[in-house]
Structures are given as structure tokens and as C-alpha cells.
Design a protein around this nucleic acid. Structure first.
Length: 656
DNA sequence: AAAAATAAATTTTTT
DNA sequence: ATTTATTTTT
């Protein structure tokens, strides 16, 4: 048979030398993935298979091939991941590509919606409601509805937390509220009508206060594309190449957005159905499973070679995931040299667990591992409390990811609420936080003032010049006026923060937090210095609401960029990362799988899979028997996920 | 009637 | 720790 010899294009001399480099750097399937020219591509990749690397190489190849960076759209699960990928891209290319859109679905959605806000019934300075803001607005809507109900009916009426969940589920799945209730919450059918009304009034309210919630950033984006063909086509033309990471965690709406892009653009997605861990946020596993059906000409590329973990670890995690029935069949092969079997450590209680983990960390450190090569992972953030105390005691530098957020501290939220009000003066949720901070102003006064703010053309001016004024609580109102006046014309974000403090919040803080207001003041000063990195209020507020870990990152960057630190993280926040040594805490029944309500066992097992597959060399899974939580004494037993692993696949360690 | 003070409840995982 | 519900005070 004749040998084929492909003639290259004129401009592709540089490209062929790039391909030579790629062939050296990548394995066959990664190379195929990075260079394939199919219009739709799905990469199915196991943990540690270098899928993110392949995706970055694909982006780089496109640019090398002559695709302009502003024709590329890169969507990832966190904005941080997008930043990391941009950095890597810069390294591969040797320069920073300009104008490439990269970020989360939510941040891209916000960006697009800001350009077409008028069409969607908003001004371009719309607020983004986070979970807390959303709850505040919903509470008001609920209070209004409850007013018409008899006291007995009020008691029976569903909690608004639940209502919020149902509304969110309905929007994220593209089903009507009634469908969702009929399908999943049959027992609440009698509330359908009221929930429907709440949902509608919530929508109205968001429009009135010029705000979108997280769901809107996706749902309204899709709506924009559906209702305005010329806008849809504009973006389809602009983004000739769409790349999506972590596709297994996208929901129905995100899937539909991708489908629309795929009508005209080249779409390439990667994911691993076995690492889908966001069902509670309505991630739709069908997106990944049915991608080949929806795009019949798509190229499927599997990446099953694991470059991360030892054969012993891979052997164990292969077994873990094989127990799930709903998974696409896959078997990872380790390319690393042999190491130790994973340890399963049986401790008596959390204190022994903490003692073991810290001692072992110090041992590994002696062996030459850096702290940054070590991570402690857990199912729920409260499980790390005792360990954290122990780590502080032993003066081990660490950082936490996931769980309780810096942003959720009361004083930070207070100051942010002021800033949000300055950005969008109709932001009801933030006014509800700001106003009652002041003496003499409570719920009733707040209600009245907000009603006036919504009627006003220029709320801030009207407050400053006294057109908007409560009938009582004059003294507190004067403070509010002073703050409004002093923040109104500030240029820099840090100046705004200091103005808020000086015009009244400093005093409020010392009254509300007599024990630790100085500490809180200090953290606000840090917030001010951090804010200098941002151009304007819009980017600053958006970054804070869409990417909460950003602030942590900056914290030590100010001091020193690459300080060595240990990682403490929820499993969810550990996704996509890897460490030489990993500790998994509290692998007990009741804690992992989580003992809250109905448990989705397959999802919990995938979480266990994600946690254990983060480890490159040393994996330690800790389980304990005595649990003292909630004041009483419990006896727990090892997690079912441990019990279903054949004992020869791990080393059982008994502590002495 | 409204605000302030006090007591009780709530916390999986996250954009 | 912070939000929400309840009671007391103004």
C-alpha cells in the first residue's frame, strides 16, 4: 500500500514545528484531542489523565494555527481555573494572548447580559444577587404573601429555603414549577399555587431592583440567545471555537447554551462522568452521556492513562468507582512507578485523628515534601475543626478552601452592602442590610424607605438632600445621609471603604462587636488594600460574588507570593487539583456518606472517588469510632466506601 | 406600632 | 457565628 504524504499549507511551517513539539509533550489521545479538526469533540478523561493540559494545548494549537484569540471562548468551573489555564497558555505560546474570553458560565453570562441588559429588562449596572441576597429578597416576597393568609395557613406554608430550592431547580432544569413539584416534591402539591405566585413576584421584584440572581445569569443568557437571533449569531460568529472544561458538572441550561453555540461554532468539551459531584446544583449527567447523540458527527476521544497516581492508588480507585452502576465503563491505567499501598487509619476519635494527621504531615515534611504538596480533604467543612486547632497549635502554615467564607463575616457583608448600594442604588437586599444597622431604624422604617427608593429617579441624591426621610429615627438617618454623601463621588474603591468607615460604620462596629472590632477593622483594611487591584466597582463586586476564593489568594500575595502552606479543603473545592500526599478525614458512616436527608449514594461514591484520586503518592484515609459531637457520645463505624474495598488493596494502620 | 433586647435555631457540598 | 423568632420596652 502506498504511503501517504500530506502536503502542508504555505503558512504552516511554524505550525508543523509546533506539532512536532506537541508530539513529544503529549500522548496519542491527548495529541489527537489537541489537534483534531472535528466540529464537535468530546474528551472523556479520567482523573490525572492530563485533560486540562490537553485542553490548554488545544487552545494553544488553535492560536498557532492562526485562529485569533478573540475567537476563542474558554469555559471552566471556577474563574480561578480559567486564570490558571490562561497562565499555562502564556507559557506554551511564549506570549499572553489578548482578548480571549475565559471564565465560568456565570461570569461569561454576566458579561454578555451586561451588553444587552436593556433587552432583558435591566440596566447594565444590574446587581448580582448571591445566595444571601436572594434569600433576603425572597423573604420580603414571602412576607407579602403570608399577609393574606390565616395564621394557621402561615404555619403550614413551606419554608422559604425550600421554596428557593424548588424555584431554583425549576429554572436550572428548564421545567415548570408544577412539573418539578409533581416529579420530586409530591407532598407539597397543595402549595403549588402559592409557590407559583411567590416565584412570579420574586421575578417582578428582581426587575424592580435591577438585579439578576445566579440562575438568571444562565437562564436569561439562554433566553437572550433564543429570542434574539441576530445576537445569537453575533456570538456564534465571534466565538468560532468554544472549549469547555468539567463538562460533567454542567446543568440543562448550560447544556443548551453549548448546543446553540455548536450550531455554528466548533465546540470541544471535556469531562469525566465519574467525577460529577454537583447534582445538588442540578448538574445534568445526561449532558455528557448524550453529547454524542446530540452531535452525531462528534469525535469521541478517551484519555485513560493516569499520570498522577501510583498503581496502588489507581488500583484502589478503579475498584471504588466500579461499584457505581450508572457510570460509563472506564479503567484507568497508572503510568507511575510502584509505591506504597493507601493507608486506612483507624483512630479512636477526632483528637487521635488530628494527632495522627499532624504527626504524619511533619514526618512527610522531614522526608522532603513541601507543605504545598500535602492536602487534607473532608466531606463537610465542620469535620476539619479539631484538626485546624491542632495545626494552629503546631504552627503549621495552612490555607482553607471551601466551607465558611471570608465574605460571610458580618462586618464584610455590611461594608459590601454599602458598596453594592452605591453601585446599584435600587439594590433592595443591600439596603435591608444597611439601614437597620443604624439606631432607631428597624424593619418598618426600612420597608417604607425602600418603597420610596424604588420610586425615586436618583435615590442617592434624594437621600443626601433629604427628600427621602423616615418619620422617626432621625439620628440614625443622619449617619446614613453622611455616608451616602461621602461615598457618592469617590473614585477609588479603597477610598469608598474608608469613607464608609469614617462616616459611621467604624462606630457601629465598635458597638456591635465589642470583643473583636479591632480585628474586624484590620480585615476591612486588608479588603481596602486588596481592592486596589480592581479597575472599578463593577469588576470588584462581580469578582467577589462570582469567585469567593479570590480574596484568599490575594491575602498572602501581598506578603509573599509563593509561601509554603498546607491545604485544607472540602472535596468539592479540591476538584481538578492534585497533591503528593492526601489525607481524607472522617471516613465514617454518617459523615461520609453524608447523613443529611436523602443520600444519593452514587454521587457520594463519586465524591469519595474524587477525594482519593487527588493523591499522587501517599493516600491516607482516616476513620474513627468515637464521636462526641452534639454534646453526646456516638459510636460510628467505617464508611461503607471503605468496607466495600477488598482489604488487600490497602494497608490497615492501627494507632498506638 | 415599632424598635430593641433576648432567646432560639440553623449549618453538606458552590457559581 | 450569624440569622431568625419571640419577648420586652419605648
Amino acid at each position: 500500500m502506498a504511503r501517504k504524504y500530506q502536503l502542508s499549507n504555505v503558512e504552516s511551517e511554524e505550525y508543523s514545528s509546533w506539532l512536532l513539539k506537541l508530539e513529544k509533550e503529549l500522548n496519542e489521545s491527548q495529541f489527537n484531542f489537541a489537534t483534531n479538526e472535528a466540529a464537535a469533540i468530546i474528551g472523556l478523561a479520567g482523573p490525572g489523565s492530563g485533560k486540562t493540559r490537553a485542553l490548554v494545548y488545544r487552545a494553544a494549537s488553535l492560536i498557532k494555527k492562526g485562529v485569533s484569540p478573540d475567537n476563542v471562548l474558554l469555559m471552566t468551573f471556577t474563574n480561578k481555573a480559567a486564570e490558571v489555564m490562561k497562565l499555562r497558555l502564556k507559557r506554551f505560546l511564549g506570549y499572553q494572548p489578548e482578548n480571549m474570553w475565559a471564565g465560568t458560565f456565570h461570569s461569561i453570562g454576566a458579561r454578555i447580559l451586561r451588553s444587552h441588559a436593556q433587552l432583558m429588562g435591566r440596566n447594565s449596572n444590574f446587581s448580582i444577587l448571591d445566595e444571601d441576597d436572594r434569600s433576603v429578597v425572597l423573604k420580603h416576597v414571602f412576607d407579602q404573601i403570608k399577609k393574606d393568609l390565616s395564621p394557621e395557613a402561615q404555619k403550614l406554608f413551606v419554608k422559604r429555603g425550600f421554596a428557593g430550592k424548588v424555584i431554583s431547580q425549576s429554572r436550572n432544569s428548564g421545567q415548570s414549577l408544577n412539573e418539578v413539584i409533581d416529579l420530586y416534591y409530591e407532598q407539597y402539591r397543595e402549595f403549588s399555587e402559592l409557590l407559583q405566585r411567590a416565584s412570579e413576584e420574586y421575578e417582578e421584584r428582581k426587575k424592580e431592583i435591577n438585579a439578576f440572581d445566579f440562575d438568571d445569569l444562565l437562564v436569561r443568557w439562554l433566553e437572550l440567545f433564543k429570542n434574539y437571533p441576530e445576537i445569537r449569531e453575533m456570538y456564534q460568529r465571534r466565538f468560532s471555537h468554544v472549549l469547555v472544561d468539567e463538562f460533567q458538572d454542567t446543568n440543562i441550561i448550560q447544556g443548551k447554551i453549548i448546543d446553540i453555540m455548536a450550531e455554528k461554532s466548533n465546540v470541544c468539551v471535556v469531562g469525566d462522568d465519574a467525577q460529577s459531584i454537583y447534582a445538588f446544583r442540578f448538574a445534568e449527567i445526561g449532558n455528557i452521556v448524550q453529547f454524542p447523540k446530540r452531535h452525531p458527527d462528534c469525535k469521541i476521544i478517551k484519555m485513560e492513562e493516569n499520570y498522577r497516581s501510583t498503581p496502588e492508588i489507581v488500583d484502589m480507585i478503579n475498584h471504588v468507582i466500579s461499584i457505581n452502576e450508572g457510570q460509563l465503563p472506564k479503567k484507568l491505567v497508572s503510568l507511575k512507578s510502584s509505591g506504597e499501598k493507601p493507608w486506612v487509619v483507624s483512630a479512636r476519635d477526632v483528637y487521635e485523628e488530628a494527632a495522627f494527621v499532624t504527626q504524619r504531615i511533619q514526618e512527610l515534611y522531614q522526608k522532603g515534601l513541601k507543605l504545598r504538596d500535602i492536602a487534607v480533604l473532608y466531606r463537610s467543612s465542620y469535620l476539619s475543626q479539631e484538626l485546624e486547632l491542632e495545626i494552629i497549635k503546631r504552627r503549621i502554615p495552612y490555607r482553607t478552601f471551601g466551607g465558611l467564607k471570608f465574605m460571610q463575616k458580618a462586618h464584610i457583608k455590611d461594608v459590601l452592602a454599602w458598596m453594592k448600594v452605591l453601585y446599584n442604588s435600587y439594590d433592595e437586599a443591600s439596603w435591608r442590610r444597611v439601614i437597620p444597622l443604624h439606631p432607631g431604624l428597624g424593619k418598618a422604617a426600612t420597608d417604607k424607605i425602600i418603597a420610596e427608593i424604588l420610586k425615586s429617579q436618583e435615590p442617592l441624591n434624594d437621600i443626601a438632600n433629604g427628600k427621602i426621610m423616615p418619620s422617626r429615627g432621625k439620628q440614625g438617618w443622619e449617619t446614613i445621609q453622611n455616608t451616602v454623601i461621602s461615598i457618592m463621588n469617590k473614585e477609588h474603591i479603597d477610598a469608598i471603604i474608608y469613607a464608609i468607615l469614617e462616616s459611621g460604620y467604624h462606630e457601629i462596629m465598635s458597638k456591635n462587636f465589642p470583643d473583636n472590632w479591632e480585628e474586624r477593622l484590620h480585615s476591612l483594611e486588608r479588603l481596602a488594600s486588596y481592592s486596589e487591584k480592581y479597575q472599578d466597582l463593577e469588576t470588584f463586586l462581580e469578582a467577589l460574588s462570582l469567585e469567593e476564593t479570590l480574596f484568599y489568594e490575594s491575602e498572602d500575595e501581598g506578603e509573599k507570593g509563593d509561601r509554603d502552606f498546607l491545604t485544607l479543603s472540602t472535596i468539592h473545592s479540591s476538584k481538578g487539583k492534585e497533591w503528593d500526599a492526601v489525607f481524607l478525614l472522617a471516613a465514617n458512616e454518617g459523615q461520609f456518606p453524608s447523613g443529611w436527608g436523602e443520600v444519593n449514594m452514587e454521587e457520594e461514591r463519586r465524591l469519595f472517588y474524587v477525594a482519593t484520586s487527588r493523591a499522587a503518592k501517599y493516600l491516607h484515609i482516616i476513620t474513627y469510632t468515637n464521636d462526641y459531637r452534639q454534646g453526646t457520645f456516638f459510636v460510628t463505624r467505617p464508611s461503607v466506601f471503605l468496607r466495600e474495598i477488598p482489604s488487600e488493596k490497602y494497608e490497615l494502620i492501627q494507632l498506638e
